[in-house]
Amino acid sequence: MKKIAFIFPGQGSQTIGMGKDFFENSKIAKEMISKATQRLGIDFEELLFEENDNLGKTEFTQPAILLVSSIANAIFKDKYKIKPQFVLGHSLGEFSALVSAGAIDYLDALELVHKRGLFMTEACAGAGAGMMALVGLEDSIVEKICEEQRKSGKKVWAANYNMDGQLVLAGLKADLESLVDTFKEAGAKRAIVLDMSVASHCELLRSAVENLKPYLEEYLKEEFVIDVISNVTAKPYNTKEEAIELLSEQLVNPVKYKHSISAFEDKVDVFIEFGNGIVLKGLNRKITKVPTLNVSDMDSLAKTIEALNE
């Protein structure tokens, strides 16, 4: 049997209509969405399947993505019995990974990431926060520029290490905008300020850290069934104590996604991405030669199971 790892996408993977194929074809999906609606008082059928403005708001985006990822994973587990070597997620996706690892119930996780989204929004309210995508620069060059700019008073940090030559920055939008030409002069092929009002994985979220901790304490279980790879350290953890510290620090530290994949690619034969779209599958093509399958609807579920049986 193949050795596999489960991986879960983060914010930015959402689209209207995500999870609808699961909902229309799976009792598991219908039940999970119904229970989520009851628990949070959010109409998830409306949020996921109908045109609305809420799906783009962090406090709604996060539970929506986690719910669809957890549904995809639950349906897969129902159809195919296999224990992964480890699980990991990109940013918010680490919470979906925790659900898969048995570290938290999915309903508790939905409540948790809804709170997380609110705390992130509150921390950045009125601050003029933003994020920027950079393509074509080495990490060390970006880090050096950010460090120099912070010394001169600007608030900019590396936030997501997605793959070689692709980094996302976080900080004050005005400061990021002022550095577009600086990064291009340094050799960036693209430097694009994103349409976001929250600055993830940087010091602007420091106030959210202490707000989140009590909920981590309340909802996380003591023991995990599977190791989770931390975004902060790119190393495995499997206890509640570690999780509370690492998930709190994840808010203000960069996501080491490419480091995590590279560090553990030799432990598996295949990665499987669970949730909407194929964002991580696309990144993995540039990071590793280990293939990535995906489960985003019933058709991709069938194809993934077929590939695992080959």
Rank of each mutant, 00 (worst) to 15 (best):
H114I: 09
R116L: 09
L118A: 13
F119E: 00
M120C: 11
T121V: 03
A123E: 00
A123C: 07
C124S: 09
C124L: 07
C124A: 11
A125H: 13
G126H: 12
A127R: 05
G130E: 04
M131T: 04
M132C: 14
L134A: 14
E138P: 10
I141D: 00
V142C: 04
K144F: 08
E147N: 14
E147K: 15
E148Q: 11
Q149E: 06
R150P: 01
K151M: 12
K151V: 08
K155I: 12
K155N: 13
K155L: 13
V156T: 11
V156A: 04
V156Y: 00
W157A: 00
A158K: 07
A158W: 00
Y161N: 04
Y161I: 01
N162M: 01
N162G: 03
D164K: 12
D164C: 07
G165N: 13
L167M: 12
L169I: 13
L169C: 09
A170K: 00
L172V: 10
K173V: 03
K173N: 04
A174C: 10
A174G: 13
D175L: 09
S178N: 12
F183C: 06
K184Q: 15
E185T: 15
A186F: 10
G187Q: 14
G187R: 14
G187E: 11
A188C: 11
K189V: 06
A191Y: 12
I192K: 15
I192S: 12
M196Y: 15
M196F: 14
A199K: 06
A199R: 02
A199H: 06
S200F: 02
H201W: 00
E203K: 15
L204S: 00
L204A: 02
S207L: 03
A208T: 07
V209N: 10
V209M: 14
E210M: 10
N211L: 03
L212A: 06
L216G: 08
L220H: 05
F224N: 01
F224A: 02
F224S: 06
V225K: 15
I226W: 13
D227K: 08
V228T: 14
I229T: 13
S230G: 00
N231I: 02
N231H: 11
V232C: 06
T233E: 08
T233K: 07
P236N: 02
Y237W: 09
N238I: 06
K240P: 04
